[in-house]
Structure formats: structure tokens, C-alpha cells
Design a protein around this nucleic acid. Sequence first.
DNA 1: GCAGAGCGTTCACAGCCCTTTCACGACGCC
DNA 2: GGCGTCGTGAAAGGGCTGTGAACGCTCTGC
Lengths: 117, 117
Amino acid sequence: MQSTGDVITAGDLEIRPSEYLAVAGGRTLTLSVRELALLAALGRREGRIVPREELYETVWGAPMRAADRSVDVYVHKLRAKLAEALPEWQFIHTHFGFGYRFSPEPSQRLHNVATSP
Amino acid sequence: MQSTGDVITAGDLEIRPSEYLAVAGGRTLTLSVRELALLAALGRREGRIVPREELYETVWGAPMRAADRSVDVYVHKLRAKLAEALPEWQFIHTHFGFGYRFSPEPSQRLHNVATSP
DNA sequence: GCAGAGCGTTCACAGCCCTTTCACGACGCC
DNA sequence: GGCGTCGTGAAAGGGCTGTGAACGCTCTGC
């Protein structure tokens, strides 16, 4: 039996927390515990702007200490893995001073240039 | 007639538990009882991340004791034999902290330039 | 009965991954 | 321009996994 308790779908991305995996464009993503939990927490709040504190408490299960950058670091890791699997899409958006918002949107492909000095 | 109760196929690999053998790229693999049972257990769950506990209970028929490394050891043996028969493919993937996932994927060592930082 | 081979299990050590933290630069808003 | 916020790479520490080898057991052939 494959009781897919809950499946979060967003564009070509499919998150299955109960099976410890996420699939992007047919490929299984290799995510760690924290990465998957954070992705699921964001996915369940699609379209909403979520404060860091809320994300931290959901994923880490404890109140966030001031100046803790863990959420930022893991958002960065998720963005890297998602971009590698689905370069045409952008899933996690920053809202300055508030938090992050999960929502699949086409990438703004202005240049195909790797602007890495 | 096909007395092959069930045959599990994955890429160039064919597992026939009812005949106690597996064929990879036309060559018959020499597997022991445990190795074949574990390979079949993984093959039947292709694409899923399977916890060690589930694999152990399926193959050994008893609950896994803490710190038991048997599954890891047999995964290692299977990987060695599969790699010898089909070096271009990777079948068993590790998911850190969770377990293993069976899925035929090409050994990644091709172009795909990941330009150095 | 005895020796040898194969198999399953356990152990120890090496190596890798994940998590956390820090530092510095880039960016946004006033 | 100035300040606070965010992006990003690196490094340290701990935990998990990879791997080779040793030990017992069973089976087989002599």
C-alpha cells in the first residue's frame, strides 16, 4: 500500500514528506532532513509570506533566537537544488524585512551569464 | 508458459525471486539468499526511499535491533556485484538519515560542467 | 571424522555528509 | 550616504555510512 498521506504539488515540483522525498521534473531530489522539512513548510504555505520565526518554529521545533541565520542558509541550499533541477522556475522569493514566500514562477532569464566574479 | 511468479525489471537488470536469480546485462549474477532477498525487496519499492527497518523486517523477518549494520553490509555487497556487471548504472542510492532508494540511474561522470567556484 | 569453501554476522576504523556558526560582501530602504 | 537585512562561501564538530576483515556456522566431498 502506498498511502501518500499528503502530497504538495507546485508546478513540476512534488513534495512527499511522508515518503521523505521530493520529485522535480521527474527526478528525485536528494534532500536532507532539514531541507525537506523546510521545503514542506514553505510548500504548505504557498502564496503566503511566511516570517522566519514561523518557519524556524515549524522546522526546528523551538523558538528562533535573535540573529539566527539558519533559515537563510537553508533557503539558499534549497534554491540551489531547485535551480539545478528546474532552472526555468523560481520557487522561493524573498520579502525584505518580512520573510519568504513559496510560489512557482518562471525565471526572469535576462542573461544566461554566470555573474560570478 | 511463464512460471516466473513475479519478475522485477529495472533498466538492464532483471530480478526473478521465484527462480532465485538475477540477470544483469545478459549475465547471471551470483547472489546469495540474503543478497537476492534484499535486492528484490528494494526492486519492489523502486523509486521509494525505504527505511532500514522496513528492509530488515522484510528480508530478515524480524524487527531490526538498534545499531544493526546488516542492511548496510548487504547493500555494499549488492552495489559491488551490480557495479561489476553494469558499471554505467547506479541502482542503490543512499538517503542520509533515512535509508536507501532503488532506481536505475546513469553513473554521473559525464560532461555537465559545474564550473568551479 | 576431517578439511575446505561459502555464507552470515559482527567489529573497527576511515571517510563523508549534515548541521551550525562565522565572516564578509551585496542589496534594499530611508 | 548610512544602516539594517539578506546572500553566500568556508570551517568546525558530531553523527552516519562505507568498507575490509575476522569469527562461527553449515554444508560438501573425501
